[in-house]
Design a protein around this nucleic acid. Sequence first.
RNA 1: GGCCCCGUGGUGUAGUGGCCUAACACAUCGCCCUGUCACGGCGAAGAUCACGGGUUCGAAUCCCGUCGGGGUCGCCA
Length: 599
Amino acid sequence: MFKNIKCNSLSASNVDSSVLLAGWVHRRRDHGQLIFIDLRDDSGLVQIVVDPDKSPESYKLASDIRNEWVIQISGIVKIRPEGTRNTQLQTGDIEIETTELKILNEATTPPFPVNDNSEIDDYLKLRFRPIYLRRQKMASNLKLRHKIVKFIRDFLSAKEFLEIETPLLIKSTPEGARDYLVPSRVYPGSFFALPQSPQQLKQILMVAGIEKYFQIARCFRDEDLRADRQPEFTQLDLEMSFVEQEDILNLTEELITELVNSIDPSKKLITPFPRFTYEDAMEKYGTDKPDLRYGIELINVTEILENVEFDIITKTIKDNGVIKGIVAPKCGTYTRRQLDNLQDIARTQGAVAGVMTIVLGSDECELEKLKPEDIKSPLSKHLSFEIIKKLAKEMNAKGGDLILLIADNNEKTNNALGILRQHIASANNLADGNLLAMAFITDFPLLDWDETNKRWTSSHHPFTAPKYQDLELLDSNPGKVMSEAYDLVCNNYELGSGSIRIHQRKLQEKILSILGYNQDEIVDRFGHLLESLESGAPPHGGIAPGIDRIVMVLAGEDNLREVIAFPKTQNSSDPLFGSPSEIDPVQLEELGLTIKNQK
RNA sequence: GGCCCCGUGGUGUAGUGGCCUAACACAUCGCCCUGUCACGGCGAAGAUCACGGGUUCGAAUCCCGUCGGGGUCGCCA
């Protein structure tokens, strides 16, 4: 071995012992006749002292050393002289007096600083990934990720789950995201697809009698990226037989709670996790993944305003729309510019008429003390002071607050207010950074109507069980059928979703036919699953929390790229490898492929 | 596919029509320095202002296009 101990494990208890260390030069401080080196390894830092009186050869070498060079140090652990201890550093009480220094490898000057946390362009973070990953923040994010995955494996193993790998080369099925495809050499013109998730495979494992399965599974979806979406990502995929929704939610809650408490006790949870139906979440928060770190609920005020003479309001009521609003606490001081900005946000969310604002004075006070002249609103000509007070009271607003109202159809109104709610919260720092506000969303509709393609699509996936009591609606009113699907959400992220699955062939075929497949297509594309279901499939269900997102919220990051070792750019490319790239014509030939429109 | 933002020495930024022969900090290179830890001091080098075109007497700065990066809507069973 090049070393017999880690930098960060050294302390005063090692005094006078000889150690052999190896690592990277984090920083060098040359004082002429004395050189300090901060040596870094995967554990942390320790200060090396190179004194020409103790080792002239080492001193000579140390003069040439630069940041990121790889060196080996033989030395003696010494207590630092009084007054030179560094309380900022875990090993700050001691230092290593060098007896021999070896240069194991030189290094080019890094393209950006490794030894601080300064901002760098995202492209450079990817182009020079190995160097970026040396940074303390990234190293600790990767460690955190490891701890999380290990916790999950231990937790589920203790509950007698079996970790089973499933293939990456599977069959493309319609529905869902665009597949990443892999051409077959043996069957030219035929393709494998990489799994969007191991969904069907884990269901087949349930049929196979594995009653508790999990996998840390890589998933692939060829869709456009977001800050919280990568084309390949990792899920904790899990599935159980003989369970109901309640069993999965309880297991998930226990897992997440113990995970967070064990990995980072400084993070707070709301327990038990609140639960909302999809409809409730939409009505109260305007989104199916609400950020529950702050209040600000959407309040329906249609009734209060129903006799108000104002174009947008009368028109909305005539069209069976709604008027809903939120209270932006202490935002009565908003400037014209800030209010205009809210307009823009509302309009881009499709609330055609924009947002109506009512300023309840600029100073905080009890609602009763509010005077008519405090009110500032484009609506003030149309709303009496009494109506405004009634509105404010209904919405639980105080003096100094800002009321935002939107009038449109229910969907657009909720949507726009949901976005405004987030905006107000982040602009005013209302979210507690240490709170992980987990919640479950349940009772999703089974199907959504796709207006473009004039067909029903699964809102979760085609294998999701409808609510038993809604089965008869499948023919008469498919849009009203609720499903046994649920999401785990946290701080405006969807951390995972799952469902109880259909375990009977007949019902599965029915759903597929509602989705628009004829009998031949059903057999061709889903035959393997249907055959399994009729061979003795137990009732089963599961959930698949996203590992990357869990790490992201626990690391306090707001981008997935900071918790994945080798992520892709927003255009799904990898600047480190330069992939995707063209391939050798011989490879194409073997696969029976020709490229159309080659540049 | 739509919309928005960004691109200035190696890095991060300043400069938003003439003060630019492009400023500052860090990094780099050289010299000095025995107690620093974001060491310090002195000095040096380093930028066709992403690329291409245009407007203008004059463009880092304004306009168009291309490329690259980011955010977002659509999309993500």
